[in-house]
Nucleic acid binder design. Sequence first.
DNA 1: GTATATTAATTGACGGATCAATAATTGACC
DNA 2: GGTCAATTATTGATCCGTCAATTAATATAC
Lengths: 141, 141
Amino acid sequence: MFKYPEEELIAQRLFELIKQTMPKFERCTGISQSRLEILRELFESEEITQRALQKKVNIDHAAVTRHLKQLEEKRMVTRRKNPEDNRFTYVSLTEEGKTKIAAYCEEKQLFISNILNGFSEHERSSLLDMLTRIQENVDKI
Amino acid sequence: MFKYPEEELIAQRLFELIKQTMPKFERCTGISQSRLEILRELFESEEITQRALQKKVNIDHAAVTRHLKQLEEKRMVTRRKNPEDNRFTYVSLTEEGKTKIAAYCEEKQLFISNILNGFSEHERSSLLDMLTRIQENVDKI
DNA sequence: GTATATTAATTGACGGATCAATAATTGACC
DNA sequence: GGTCAATTATTGATCCGTCAATTAATATAC
């Protein structure tokens, strides 16, 4: 039999947590985490190159392309090529997109508040600190 | 502009963390987290019904079926119907599967140790506790 | 005892992510 | 100036997950 040291329990719980949380997030907010990140990034940077956007949200180029295509169909974003360098395409929110994203963000904030219910200020910063350190460890691998 | 309260940073980091960790996990260990969970569960319960296995690892029936099919092709598991109730199928590891899984688990443990490098005993239990509480909050949604 | 409901497993459709290959454009070097 | 390299974006193949519908077997209710 395998023993389950605390280390493994942490990993297990982390994994379980995400697995259960993501679908609930999408139901509550009406949008996927990734897509909301894209929209938020667009909101904050007026007009941004697709490549820069991809680096910010940190998902695959291909996925970004497909997200943007769908968002374009829904009239939430527009795209145009950079006239000085046709390899780049600029992406920006439409007015319609801008009004919609605010609602999404509020939903998200509500959702996260629920998840962190009962956490003291000290606990929050401690948790954030630990997650950051884990992140750094992962980066080294 | 949106503000990023600490709450959101925590959620952000959690999400980022998983997104970056999972692919690295698969590269390092040579197997996906989900599939390893299935194998481990099989290892611990000798022979188990597919339904019970699904509940344990907590992924969709369909996904379990497909994992098991592939594992069967690789000669790592065998399946047989319950003669007393033909709806159920029992799953168990082959000898080949048993020997392989040990190596996977060691890889996993190593990986997790790396990720939690620099964490004191106290921090680990504190982190585990917080994750558990978040889990409970999520369950309520 | 037969019709209905429940349960397990499978399959298909679909969404979202990755990787690999390709096309188009630009930059650099001889 | 023409070839080669680098960069961006797109597309196709594949994997993994969910949901919904289907099939097969069993249990239940009348």
